[in-house]
Design a protein around this nucleic acid. Structure first.
Lengths: 241, 241
DNA sequence: TGGGATTTGTTCGTATGTATT
DNA sequence: GAATACATACGAACAAATCCC
């Protein structure tokens, strides 16, 4: 009936936008689509086998999450957050996750504790081999925590800032910068289980601070030649992409 | 050229989605569109002189902000947050604004202090006459504070939760529930100016707590006749609007 | 500077899915 | 339970703006 048979199974209507959104999200967070890269609606839609309408809608969500930058009449570009924006994101993340632990301290069920400990074990196992798996798990830990609060809004915000942080780490972080994270996660579980709210908040704060420091201080930006060169190009009358 | 000349001045293209978004946002927050009211894309678009595409896009943003609920294949409805959701919102708001004051304490410029004091004066003046003006100003105070941090993400989140809180107050709050807010705002400015971070955080916490309490504890839901009557109407074979 | 090509912004028609009688 | 009616989801074509040569 139609020419683009790429959609398998004739999925239930209304889910395809989400599929596009998730595909792009993964592609960005895993670095397949590099920062500042332009994403034309047409080619993306063609690539994914959907029309521009859906691509545009997915773009909207990704822009709100800060993974894409939408310039009016110019198109969509993969976000390339500055160092200052990166610091802002970590500041907000800190505020949100502080609330998460305040909410959870002393209230974790045995089942939840088991879930968290299982997750940390997975982190530990994947630590040896580098690659995105380890980074993904380290980030997921925080998302699992947020989900356990049962506060949907808090959960959504944490998920958003986590996405942004992943992108930031992809830009500014070094390949395997999650080495000590596992032990810090263990400390956090212990503090939460003991019910000491203040200690849990402190541990979380230090943990996020160290993550931010590893990402933002130890390394200079990698692979942002474009933004580095932009001022020079402009002063020469050139127009950087 | 077209039949619906409602858009004045032939506004620059690309801004019309924002116009739709803002119009609906105001209409909801000012109570013109009551909670649980259904908003068909078609009639809204007709009313505003735009096509369903733009309406749909605006709906998406409003849904993300929690002002609209988008039920798949059912349509868009003005959000009608439950008491539990309301508490969740206030919890997140507390976490965010705590960060705002932590960011601002002792760092306000004289000009910023003047701006804040001017704002409080406006609040005080409008306090006598009831009406939405007073409520709007009280909410704006917090938004102004967030803007002063210079943290765009924090600013956006505070704006979002403020919107949600406005809706919650419209549902659960009593008409002029912002009476003591002015003095609390004055205390906050003083604490911020003195540079005592802990005290500023404490004041903000108490302030938000009292706002939440005034909204969520002292009153039962008002003006949700529609949802109250819905079961009865349905059992009588009627279709509530 | 100007014109053509490309891309976005928008509209509208059709198909599909859900609720109702 | 089937058919009707309605509303959304989607996609293709049109119009406008931008970019590039």
């Amino acid at each position: 009936m139609n020419h683009a048979g790429s959609t398998s199974h004739e999925t239930k209507s209304g889910q395809r936008v989400l599929a596009v959104y998730r595909a792009l999200r993964r592609a960005i967070l895993e670095g397949a689509l590099r920062p500042s890269l332009k994403l034309p609606e047409d080619s993306i839609g063609e690539q994914l086998g959907v029309s521009r309408t859906l691509v545009r809608e997915a773009f909207g969500r990704l822009a709100i999450e800060g993974l894409l930058e939408l310039k009016p009449n110019r198109g969509a570009f993969v976000a390339n957050p500055s160092l200052e924006e990166a610091r802002d994101v970590f500041e907000v993340r800190n505020a949100l996750e502080r609330q998460v632990v305040a909410n959870l301290a002393g209230r974790l069920t045995p089942q939840q504790i088991a879930t968290l400990e299982h997750h940390v074990k997975l982190e530990n196992d994947s630590q040896g081999r580098d690659g995105p798996e380890s980074i993904r798990l380290a980030g997921e830990f925080h998302i699992v925590l947020a989900q356990m609060t049962g506060n949907d809004l808090l959960n959504r915000y944490v998920q958003e800032v986590s996405s942004r942080c992943s992108l930031i780490l992809a830009i500014y972080g070094r390949p395997h910068s999650s080495e000590c994270a596992v032990s810090e996660h263990r400390q956090l579980i212990e503090a939460l289980t003991s019910g000491d709210t203040v200690k849990a908040e402190t541990v979380m704060h230090h943990h996020l601070e160290s993550v931010a420091n590893r990402a933002l201080l130890e390394r200079r930006p990698k692979q942002d030649l474009s933004s580095l060169l932009a001022p020079f190009a402009r002063s020469e009358g050139l127009t950087p992409s």
